[in-house]
Computed example of a mutant assay.
Amino acid sequence: MSIRPSLCLLMLPLFTGCQYLPHTYYFTAPEHEPNPAWIRIVDFTQHADIYQYENGVRSGGVVRTGPLPFINTQDVGMPKAGQNLTFDYYETPVRPGIETHVGMFWEGPRTQSCFVTVEFTPQAGRYYQFRLTSGSNGTCTAYPSLIERDKDGNGWHLTPNPDVTYSPAGPKAKMYYKNGRFEDPDYQPPAGLYPGM
């Protein structure tokens, strides 16, 4: 093959606008929302996402701030409800009154993972918390909560949020293997394929 056809093939992605390269969408908090709702995601923020749907248009994305899967702790001053939160949680305002999906994903050793998406419509001025347990015992469980003021008005507490639905099924999801060969505990992959195992 001559150099000209080879060069043309190499230049082709530049002219297609790199549309075939992977693209990540990131969640951006509303800047001028006069009375937002508030969401906190606890644990596994490196894989969490928030999407909102209005008139058939989806906006949002993953809550981390860059392409590397680093944990993204962001504190915007939501009430802690007696919790000792110091690491791996993400707080943000969201637009109220529209369909909202909070996706949580756990990824463990040997390509194990599980995920749950919680769907709800946030109300203006309310505080919502979402937590996912790890799938290391075979399942992961989502815990959607409301953060509410105590009756005496001096503190805050968590109560289960009954106004949610789940995708693909319920709050509990089975752990699965991205690579089925790892289901065999004796399987040892080539060292170059999965370094560190």
Rank of each mutant, 00 (worst) to 15 (best):
C18N: 13
Q19K: 11
Q19N: 14
Q19P: 04
Y20I: 14
L21R: 09
L21H: 07
L21E: 14
P22W: 07
P22F: 06
P22K: 07
P22M: 08
H23K: 15
H23C: 15
T24M: 09
Y25V: 11
Y25A: 15
Y25L: 15
Y25F: 12
Y26R: 05
F27K: 04
T28D: 13
T28Y: 11
A29S: 13
P30Y: 08
P30I: 10
P30R: 08
E31L: 12
E31C: 10
H32E: 15
H32C: 07
H32S: 14
H32M: 13
E33D: 10
E33P: 02
N35R: 11
N35I: 11
P36E: 10
A37G: 10
W38K: 01
R40V: 01
R40L: 06
I41F: 00
I41L: 08
I41N: 00
I41W: 00
V42E: 04
D43Y: 10
F44H: 08
F44G: 00
T45Y: 03
T45P: 04
T45W: 00
Q46G: 00
H47Y: 10
H47I: 01
H47T: 03
H47L: 11
H47C: 08
A48H: 00
A48L: 01
A48S: 09
D49A: 14
I50C: 06
I50D: 01
I50L: 03
Y51Q: 09
Q52G: 07
Q52E: 13
Q52N: 11
Q52F: 02
Y53N: 03
Y53S: 12
E54G: 09
G56W: 09
G56E: 09
V57A: 14
V57F: 13
R58W: 06
S59D: 10
S59Y: 08
S59A: 15
G60D: 08
G60M: 05
G60K: 03
G61K: 00
G61Q: 04
G61P: 01
V62L: 05
V63I: 12
V63G: 03
G66F: 07
L68G: 11
P69W: 08
P69S: 08
P69Y: 09
F70D: 12
F70N: 15
I71H: 02
I71A: 09
I71K: 12
N72I: 02
T73V: 06
T73E: 08
Q74F: 07
D75V: 05
V76Y: 11
G77M: 07
G77F: 00
G77Y: 04
G77L: 04
M78K: 03
M78Q: 13
P79Q: 12
P79G: 02
K80L: 13
Q83D: 14
N84K: 15
N84S: 13
L85Q: 04
T86W: 15
T86V: 15
F87P: 05
F87T: 15
F87Q: 14
D88N: 15
D88T: 10
D88L: 11
Y89Q: 07
Y89P: 04
Y90P: 01
E91N: 08
T92S: 14
P93T: 03
P93M: 03
V94T: 06
P96D: 05
G97E: 11
I98C: 05
E99R: 14
E99V: 09
E99S: 13
T100D: 03
V102N: 00
G103W: 00
M104R: 02
M104K: 00
F105L: 09
F105I: 01
F105M: 12
W106E: 01
